[in-house]
Design a protein around this nucleic acid. Sequence first.
DNA 1: CGCCTAGTTGACAGGATGTAAAGTACTCTA
DNA 2: TAGAGTACTTTACATCCTGTCAACTAGGCG
Lengths: 196, 196
Amino acid sequence: MSRDERATRTAALEAARDLFGAEGYHGVGLERVAKRAGVSRQTIYLHFGSKAGLLVELARYEHERSGIDALAERTVWSAPDAVAALEAWVALFPAFAPQVLDFVRALDGARRSDPDAAEVWRDQSDDRWQGCRRLAEWLKRDGVLAPGWTIRSAADLIWALASLQMYDWLTLERGWSAGEFTRRIQQTLRRTLVAR
Amino acid sequence: MSRDERATRTAALEAARDLFGAEGYHGVGLERVAKRAGVSRQTIYLHFGSKAGLLVELARYEHERSGIDALAERTVWSAPDAVAALEAWVALFPAFAPQVLDFVRALDGARRSDPDAAEVWRDQSDDRWQGCRRLAEWLKRDGVLAPGWTIRSAADLIWALASLQMYDWLTLERGWSAGEFTRRIQQTLRRTLVAR
DNA sequence: CGCCTAGTTGACAGGATGTAAAGTACTCTA
DNA sequence: TAGAGTACTTTACATCCTGTCAACTAGGCG
């Protein structure tokens, strides 16, 4: 892949990110995405095959760009114990949400009627669940998992509470600050999943 | 409104409910909705003005049909104390989710790029929040609201945890049973919001 | 009979996705 | 330096969807 080709690709992805994020996947056509990227509509078809293909590539691009995996490695998986790791996991969301939240909302809107978008959503969702399961296993191993909770159900609860959607609702729809989200969700998970 | 007119309207709403629910708002055109309702596409425009108008009316229709308000009156607001009311509130979701979940998913998908859908979503969301605030006030009045939680923040947490989206994720995506959802979310809210 | 209403049919404009073909501009290489 | 390949553009077209318009039909009612 030449430098030009890569630049075109990147320009298309960033234009799509901006427009999908601002107006939703169904709210903007490829003509406008192409114009913003300084490229013809057909170039997008050459690179991504379809509008849905563009969305799929965009999901990968945004995930990588967010640096979330590296950040988790430094904070969550280097934590001294399971409870500290769980709290670091919750703190992850405010750290990278601003960069990806608009796009995630667009993907969430698209997946209802687009099989490709649904598959990407599921992949990313499963990845995140693996992290949650690892945390739940750690809690169990440390002997602090509250009675009544299995590794699977604890992972599910972490997965549901420490999620971008949850962050979206509580901060943007209900006006919580990033700090409030972190503190209150940490407390909720600690009180529910950590044995006293 | 004549009997025929009402029958046409109802047929259109039920066709839309089935198709939007199965394939998403953007996944099906009005031609198919009209055909399933046994009516012409133009009749839908006469009755609802636009595809979004149909969705808006459908939201009202489904809300009424679910009987959720009457059920809440009988169970939540007749509970003996605030904690029992909170638990009844959580138990509300499995009771009426099956009837409306598909449609709610369609509305959630549509609101990203449709201002009308977004407004209906916001209205229903606000209504539900009022119920949550009433619960939080009751907890406070009973003197059992955990320290660190205001009425507003407690209402927000209930609103986020006891929601159709949460029920959707945990049951359909993570395989929880209705009973598991009720029990675990009740426990989570009780341990977090109720002072010991 | 004439009027009103609900609904149908057909046509059309505008915009979207997706495909195809021909042309341009640039680079690399024999 | 001529030729081939690559990346991209332009134009055109098929198809689908939303939304509007106008003309028509059928039934109920004074």
